[in-house]
């Protein structure tokens, strides 16, 4: 009697050993890579943000409406903040998704927590993007130089 032992992954296995065909392989692979690429970009973006806002000039005491108007008068800072908003939110959301998958064991709990997470992410990303692009420094009676 000769036992017929199929090679692994030959798909000639007893069905009970065959893994689910539906694969999330490539999505998880892209997410893994994205965490690393966005991480490198975020170091530059966030360290630059903190340095400009807390270390230079008057630091925290200098932050007010006029300070924001001054920064967003420059398109470089607009796109800096836009990139930081999108990358940090997607990186953070994906990180928290991993954590939910690790700790929430019941499928219903997972679905709810991730639903809340994704809604919060969409709201914050849309709000933050609108704020950057619809910002108007010129309120009536403004004395800011950009409004003269």
């Amino acid at each position: 009697m000769s036992a017929d032992i199929a090679a692994p992954r030959s798909q000639r296995l007893d069905p009970k050993y065959v893994r689910a065909r539906k694969s999330r392989g490539s999505f998880e692979m892209i997410a893994w890579l994205f965490m690393r690429l966005s991480g490198v970009a975020l170091i530059v973006l966030i360290f630059g943000h903190l340095f400009a806002n807390l270390m230079l000039g008057e630091g925290i005491t200098g932050i007010n409406f006029g300070f924001v108007a001054g920064k967003w008068a420059d398109p470089v800072w607009m796109f800096w903040d836009l990139a930081m908003l999108w990358l940090a939110m997607l990186h953070g959301t994906n990180g928290v998704r991993t954590i939910i998958n690790d700790y929430a064991e019941k499928p219903v709990t997972r679905v709810w927590l991730k639903g809340i997470l994704y809604v919060a992410t969409i709201v914050i990303v849309v709000l933050g993007t609108l704020v950057i692009f619809t910002f108007d420094p010129c309120i009536p009676g403004s004395t800011l130089s950009v409004c003269q």
Partner: peptide, 30 residues
């Protein structure tokens, strides 16, 4: 730290959005 930063960022975008409400509201929170 990842979770802490994420929660801060949610609040931070909300407080920054006050620049669209009024300069006074933003300055008060700042």
């Amino acid at each position: 730290t990842g979770v802490v930063i994420f929660l801060f960022l949610l609040v931070h975008v909300l407080d920054t959005s006050l620049v669209r409400v009024s300069p006074g509201a933003y300055d008060a929170v700042m």
